[in-house]
Measured scan of single mutants.
Amino acid sequence: RTAFSSEQLARLKREFNENRYLTERRRQQLSSELGLNEAQIKIWFQNKRA
């Protein structure tokens, strides 16, 4: 289980509010910017949509 920092969570929530689905390219960008792997971001979005 991933423990996200408050900064990472704030960024993910802001991104989710703008778009509930990420393109592969956007997921790669977020992964690089947040220091998370793409799978972690993908799962976070899946869980948030559920």
Rank of each mutant, 00 (worst) to 15 (best):
S32G: 07
R25N: 11
R25C: 08
E15S: 04
E38H: 05
A39H: 12
E38C: 05
Q29N: 07
R1A: 14
S32T: 12
N47C: 13
L12F: 01
S31A: 15
T2L: 14
N19T: 05
G35P: 00
Q8I: 10
Q29L: 10
R25F: 11
I41Y: 01
Q40R: 06
Q29S: 07
Q29W: 08
A50R: 14
S32L: 15
N19K: 04
E38F: 04
R49Q: 09
N47M: 14
T2R: 10
R27L: 15
Q46I: 11
R26F: 04
R26T: 06
Q29V: 08
K42V: 15
N37F: 07
E15N: 01
R26V: 06
I41A: 01
A10V: 08
Q28G: 06
R20H: 10
N47H: 11
W44G: 00
S31N: 02
S5W: 03
Q40S: 11
Q29H: 07
I43M: 12
R11Q: 06
N17E: 14
I41Q: 01
I41F: 01
W44D: 01
T23W: 04
Q40E: 14
R1E: 15
I41N: 00
T23G: 07
I41M: 03
N19V: 04
A3L: 11
F4R: 02
S5V: 03
K13S: 13
F16Q: 02
I41G: 00
R27F: 11
L30M: 04
Q28I: 10
R14D: 09
Q29C: 07
L12M: 04
R11D: 02
E7M: 07
E33T: 04
N47R: 13
N37Y: 06
Q46W: 11
K13Y: 14
E38Y: 04
G35V: 03
F45I: 02
L36D: 00
A50V: 09
R25T: 13
L30Q: 01
S6H: 11
E33F: 03
T2W: 11
E24F: 08
A39V: 12
I43E: 15
K13E: 15
R1F: 13
F45M: 02
N47D: 09
E7L: 08
S5E: 03
Q29F: 07
Y21N: 07
K48E: 15
E18L: 10
Q29D: 07
F4Y: 07
S32H: 12
L36H: 01
F4Q: 02
A10D: 11
S31I: 05
Y21R: 06
L12Y: 01
R14F: 09
E7T: 09
E33C: 04
G35D: 06
R11N: 04
Y21L: 07
G35L: 05
L9H: 05
E7K: 07
L22F: 03
E24A: 14
K48M: 15
T23P: 06
N19G: 05
R11Y: 06
A50D: 09
R25L: 12
S5M: 03
L36T: 03
A10M: 08
R25G: 12
F16Y: 10
R11I: 11
E15A: 12
A39K: 11
R20D: 06
L36S: 02
R14Q: 14
L9K: 05
Q28T: 07
R25Q: 14
G35T: 03
Q40Y: 09
K13M: 15
L22G: 02
Q29K: 08
E18N: 10
F45A: 01
S31P: 01
L9F: 04
N37C: 07
F45S: 00
N37Q: 11
N17L: 09
W44Y: 08
E24S: 14
R20G: 08
K13H: 15
K13F: 12
S5P: 02
A39C: 14
R25K: 13
N37V: 06
T2M: 11
L9N: 05
S5K: 04
L36N: 00
F16T: 01
G35W: 02
I43W: 15
N47P: 02
Q40G: 03
F16L: 03
A39N: 13
E38A: 08
L34W: 02
N17K: 14
R26N: 04
R26A: 07
Q46E: 13
R49C: 09
L12I: 02
Q28E: 08
R27S: 15
L30H: 00
K13P: 00
L30N: 00
